[in-house]
Design a binder for these strands. Structure first.
Lengths: 252, 252
DNA sequence: AAGTGGTCTAGACCACTTG
DNA sequence: AAGTGGTCTAGACCACTTT
């Protein structure tokens, strides 16, 4: 009944899967910018030549995956990596007693270097290729609590300079998304305990060998492609890493 | 058009929400036992007097929440807290190099005690009320890696003895579910770094003051009611706590 | 009032699993 | 072959937000 579709052999095999892929492609290609509103569901369903229920099924999935956001009465939008998103999805450090708080981020260093084996594996590249290495200190309640060491492949961020990074108006992931077209849609974190090294000791104002939480995060964009490798050292004297146990799904 | 419904003023306000509640009630009341197969969707939709799409929407939600599981061609089942479920949802410790592995659990102690303030807050009870305190050592690859200290309210597990606990055929959550009708459906974990104390040092075979990962978990059943408070001390020399960052939902 | 997403219906047909 | 869940249709009407 549908002779006009072009390539329904996208992902999985069902119709709504292929519509998901088409919407994602429009985001990746820049047709749908971060924060942009999608056409309404009736229009979208007729444009894709499917029933509205099928269109909604596709959008349901993308909302569940954190790629789109629906607001009844207003519209459906491409997710923006703003502060709210950051706090909701990517910042799990929370005061043991008291409110959740947005951290103050201070740049310590911004360097070009060659990827170590560990970084190369995490970022899916060859060891020795150029990476940008950034170190930040994050403060909560006025005190330095987290030391973040970020590694990103230089070829993904060709024009990024220390000044651009430092003067970004929003979050780091917002910079990736708006300036470089790389939308972070998820990540995997491996958490362990480690003794504070000299750098952490100095910038977090703690004794060397104090137990810290080490979080190794690989953040990825569509197609499970790695965007950033980040090692966070967290002083958990007054803060916890909070995680919710629920039945996962994972896809895209 | 529907004059036979009894109490659609259950949760939220929509029809599918009230059907969710009815199914959950049948699980809680024991009409639907863990592992049991639900009637097929056509029967269920006519029993609840709704369209099949509405019935499916309700079941969709319960599947996403980890309460039901669908298997195409076979049926829909009440989730059983077996080993697969445990590994999938509740055991996030993974070897840094190598396969994920089911731990060998060894009982260290099983005692009756009075709830500390911390335990009382976690379990939603009064400090000083009776709790059961259980200590386990979990081994991976033949070596002791995790020390688990469990606290549960005695009034929720009236007939539980050391022998019953020790001789359980399956997982701990399976015991809670089948013997005591308490289905764990989720939990919140607060993770931090801590130095090994004497008990951890002794049973994990490590130096005192070695950095360990401490995981404080409150596991809950329907209605966000706390079932268990568990503190895990993990030797992360060879293992990580693995967590996936995705857009959460949370409900029930 | 107009425009958006949210709920619900009443089917048809497809894909998968099992006896 | 019979039974299960999965996909898809083509609407109607409700709830919410904005102008």
């Amino acid at each position: 009944m549908n002779e006009t579709f072009t390539s329904n052999v996208a992902r999985g095999s069902s119709l709504y899967q292929s519509i998901k892929s088409k919407i994602v492609q429009e985001i990746q290609s820049g047709i749908l910018m971060p924060g942009a509103m999608l056409p309404n569901e009736r229009d979208l369903s007729s444009r894709f030549d499917v029933a509205i229920g099928t269109l909604r099924r596709a959008v349901d999935d993308l909302v569940a995956e954190g790629i789109l956001i629906r607001q009844q009465g207003r519209g459906t939008f491409v997710v923006l990596q703003d502060r709210d998103r950051f706090m909701f999805q990517y910042f799990r450090i929370s005061a043991r007693q008291g409110q959740r708080e947005f951290p103050l981020v201070k740049l310590l260093s911004f360097n070009k270097a060659r990827a170590s084996i560990e970084e190369a594996i995490a970022l899916g590249m060859q060891a020795g290729q150029p990476v940008l290495k950034i170190v930040n200190v994050l403060s909560l309640g006025g005190k330095p609590v987290i030391l973040d060491k970020i590694a990103i492949a230089q070829h993904s961020f060709p024009s990024l300079t220390k000044e651009i990074f430092k003067n970004r108006p929003g979050t780091i992931y917002e910079l990736y998304q708006i300036q470089f077209g790389l939308t972070v849609i998820g990540g995997v974190e491996r958490v362990r305990a480690a003794a504070a090294d000299a750098l952490a000791s100095e910038h977090l104002g703690i004794a060397q060998d104090q137990p810290l939480l080490q979080i190794n995060r690989v953040a990825h964009t569509f197609g499970n492609q790695a965007v950033e490798y980040r090692i966070s050292m967290v002083n958990t004297e007054e803060f916890d890493y909070v995680s919710h146990l629920h039945s996962q799904s994972t896809s895209v």
